[in-house]
Design a protein around this nucleic acid. Structure first.
Ligand code: SF4
Ligand code: SF4
Lengths: 161, 161
DNA sequence: ACTATTATAGACATTAAAGATCCATAATAG
DNA sequence: CTATTATGGATCTTTAATGTCTATAATAGT
């Protein structure tokens, strides 16, 4: 299991946009050149980002892309979810196995609520919990926070001299 | 991005083993029947788990699988890493792009150490941090902890009556 | 030593997803 | 009106996951 290259591209592209002035449009040519990816492929990714309201796009002369909102409001989680989708990392298939009986419907309790199914599965609970941890961290880190860190590091370097 | 079905199978199989008495061997037939997966495929997965020291296997009559160590010493992270591999979730490709220059070698500092490369990348830092969060959570949850929780829940159900 | 049983490993086939390209179309600035 | 730029659909390639089959090796029980 790995993040797709598209996620890689998307993040780099957004950082590039974050460096450009607001309301200045960056064309696909510049982006693709900067990242070393084909225009064709990258434009698909940018298109996705637009559909999800991460960037704005304007066609025509001097057109291109810009961030749709301030970089501090674009979290890593936002980006990952656009590209990788929003399904859970863990989704079981065999919800009819004996295991299932054991871990979900637990010892029988058929009277009241049936059809709890997946909601109460102990395996899913762990896997989902783990995913949430990762999400939380990604929610706290934005395009801007990376940019800031870069600046900070740069001045740190300068001090050394 | 999703966990593979193999991870699903592995977890279920280990829970099955965790329920069986220690030093009692569970054959692939029983496992595959219980999970609703083909013997062929499941045996591949079990084989991997054996190679990584999660389970023990003995061939021959009355042979089969058993946990290689106590269930409380088998964490979800252990299992996931056996099946999904140990590469990082995020591994960038284009480490030659302009972006790279900016985020890693930061403003130039060519004198002393070159070749720091990926180690100091701010994007990787975020992505790796997020992954670590997930790992930590998975490290804290074991096959046994799920089994315990199941028992606990069962007694809880009983109390209700 | 023999036999039935069970796991193992390699080869192979199938399916699904990611990665990538091409082209016809639509929108926009000038 | 035109050159420019993004968009969406179709399509191809590559890669990884999934799944099956078979021959081999190891073991317990006789
Ligand atoms: S809901 Fe839980 S127990 Fe049931 S099949 Fe899915 S993972 Fe297994
Ligand atoms: S090391 Fe960082 S900046 Fe360089 S290519 Fe990888 S992700 Fe991008």
């Amino acid at each position: 299991m790995q993040f797709s290259k598209s996620t890689d591209y998307a993040l780099h592209a957004l950082i590039h946009l974050g460096l450009s002035e607001r309301s200045h449009h960056v064309g696909i040519k510049e982006l693709s050149g900067s990242l070393g990816v084909s225009e064709s492929y990258l434009s698909k990714i940018m298109s996705k980002l637009r559909q999800d309201g991460i960037v704005r796009a304007v066609p025509g002369v001097n057109g291109g892309y810009e961030l749709a909102r301030p970089a501090e409001q674009i979290s890593f989680l936002d980006v990952i979810q656009v590209i990788e989708g929003r399904q859970q990392l863990f989704e079981c298939s065999n919800s009819s196995s004996q295991q299932h009986q054991l871990l979900v419907e637990q010892g029988s309790a058929p009277d009241e609520q049936r059809n709890l199914a997946r909601k109460d599965c102990l395996i899913e609970k762990v896997m989902l919990g783990a995913e949430q941890q990762m999400h939380q961290y990604m929610r706290e880190h934005t395009i801007q926070s990376v940019l800031d860190e870069a600046v900070e590091r740069r001045s740190h370097e300068a001090n050394k001299k």
